[in-house]
Amino acid sequence: MTTPWGVSELARFPTDPRDTLRAWDAADEYLLRHLAGTDDAPPVDLSGSVVVLGDRWGALTTALTAAGRHPVQITDSYLGRQATRANLARNGTDPEGVRLLSTRDTPPDRIDVLLIRVPKSLALLEDQLHRLAPGIHEGTVVVGTGMVKEIHTSTLRLFERIVGPTRTSLAEKKARLIFCTPGSLPDRGGDPWPLTYTLDADAGAGAGLAVTNHAGIFCAERLDVGTRFFLQHLPQGTGASRILDLGCGNGVVGTAAALAHPGAEVLFVDESFQAVASAEATYRANLFEDEAGGKAEFGVGDAATGIPADSVDLVLNNPPFHSHQATTDATARRMFAGARDVLRPGGELWVVGNRHLGYHVRLRRLFGNCDVVASDPKFVVLRAVKR
């Protein structure tokens, strides 16, 4: 990526030679040009406290660090954080010298420049603006960026309501900037997140569970139809002593599995910090570890990386097939391969997915077998056994 301060070598994480997607786009380039003052505007003073929210693969953080600034990065994505670390090192910067925070960490007390890569989730933007608002002052420079298709009227209204008067730039290469002037907003209101609700009787093994959803997780305001279908067909009484809810989201699947397997240890793993926080809150609201003799662990990570091989009896998985705006099966591939590595011989992987994704083909290649447990016109539940 060529920036006003030089050329940065960037890659997504984990690196995959088959992946043709770049680690930056026109929105990142547009914002960096604006900051440097190369688009017929004065440069932005970056000498104070600079916070970068939602930097997807570390392009903004890496470029600003190359310019001699040391921004604080805030992200919900473990993969985004790891990409930032790798890209900083790739460009000659010690990653330990840059402050990398998650969306669950306490934000800086004072923010002089706030740079926002508009997220796909409007709820996550709302939550983070509320969390950052106490550190914003009248002199704070607030600039957002995104592709035109990512910025809607509702996006601008959020900036207006939580931060102050907002306007947008002209579009360039299908990217746009958002300029927001902090002001006194007595009607800002409180942060509505997290949301909680109780599942109805149609939720199968999840019926009656209290669910907690932090902002930004998939279908945070309701139970999505794929998970509902999965809950209706979860394995019961398999004798599993160690269960992995892989890509756990709000944790309802792993919590239901814990109830169905008293005494089992359940691992909840997701690459989203918001998701893992949701999963822990959901589990704690419905189970106490000393009641059933089991226990739970909660971890943010890339698929099953870091879990010992041959250590899990049952893996439950509802893999995503989007990475930001791109449709890809790369995450599912890593999850399936990771599941096979961590399963004990005889252990089972249960997967729910849209029928058209053809997961059964890949599972048969990996495991040598794949059974259809249940299906309807839209979804299918598959089971693969490690031989």
Score class of each variant (00 low, 15 high):
residue 216 G to S: 09
residue 212 T to F: 06
residue 178 I to N: 03
residue 132 L to R: 05
residue 136 I to F: 11
residue 172 E to Y: 09
residue 198 T to R: 15
residue 213 N to I: 00
residue 189 G to Q: 12
residue 177 L to M: 07
residue 200 D to S: 12
residue 203 A to V: 04
residue 206 G to W: 03
residue 152 H to W: 13
residue 153 T to H: 13
residue 174 K to W: 00
residue 197 Y to E: 04
residue 205 A to R: 08
residue 167 R to C: 11
residue 197 Y to M: 03
residue 197 Y to G: 08
residue 175 A to E: 01
residue 141 V to L: 08
residue 175 A to T: 00
residue 212 T to Q: 03
residue 143 V to K: 03
residue 202 D to E: 14
residue 152 H to C: 03
residue 138 E to P: 09
residue 169 S to L: 08
residue 140 T to I: 06
residue 161 R to S: 14
residue 134 P to Q: 11
residue 200 D to L: 10
residue 175 A to C: 07
residue 148 V to P: 00
residue 166 T to F: 04
residue 132 L to F: 07
residue 161 R to W: 08
residue 177 L to F: 02
residue 131 R to T: 13
residue 137 H to Q: 12
residue 191 D to L: 10
residue 168 T to C: 10
residue 194 P to M: 07
residue 208 G to S: 07
residue 206 G to M: 02
residue 156 L to N: 02
residue 187 D to M: 13
residue 194 P to A: 09
residue 179 F to L: 13
residue 209 L to Q: 01
residue 175 A to W: 00
residue 187 D to P: 05
residue 165 P to V: 10
residue 155 T to Q: 05
residue 211 V to E: 00
residue 134 P to Y: 11
residue 132 L to A: 08
residue 141 V to N: 00
residue 144 G to I: 01
residue 207 A to M: 02
residue 161 R to G: 07
residue 159 F to M: 10
residue 202 D to N: 11
residue 151 I to T: 06
residue 167 R to G: 11
residue 173 K to R: 15
residue 184 S to A: 14
residue 172 E to R: 15
residue 159 F to C: 11
residue 135 G to C: 12
residue 149 K to F: 06
residue 161 R to A: 15
residue 150 E to R: 02
residue 159 F to V: 05
residue 153 T to A: 15
residue 193 W to E: 09
residue 215 A to W: 05
residue 169 S to C: 06
residue 209 L to E: 00
residue 195 L to G: 01
residue 205 A to T: 00
residue 173 K to M: 02
residue 141 V to E: 11
residue 161 R to E: 13
residue 201 A to S: 14
residue 131 R to H: 12
residue 159 F to P: 00
residue 154 S to E: 13
residue 176 R to H: 00
residue 134 P to G: 07
residue 142 V to W: 03
residue 173 K to N: 12
residue 134 P to N: 10
residue 155 T to G: 08
residue 132 L to Y: 08
residue 179 F to H: 09
residue 193 W to S: 05
residue 201 A to E: 14
residue 183 G to L: 09
residue 144 G to S: 10
residue 133 A to E: 14
residue 184 S to N: 14
residue 154 S to T: 15
residue 170 L to M: 13
residue 141 V to Q: 07
residue 205 A to K: 03
residue 171 A to E: 05
residue 159 F to I: 06
residue 136 I to Q: 07
residue 142 V to P: 04
residue 202 D to W: 02
residue 178 I to V: 15
residue 214 H to C: 11
residue 159 F to W: 11
residue 208 G to A: 06
residue 139 G to R: 14
residue 209 L to P: 01
residue 162 I to Y: 01
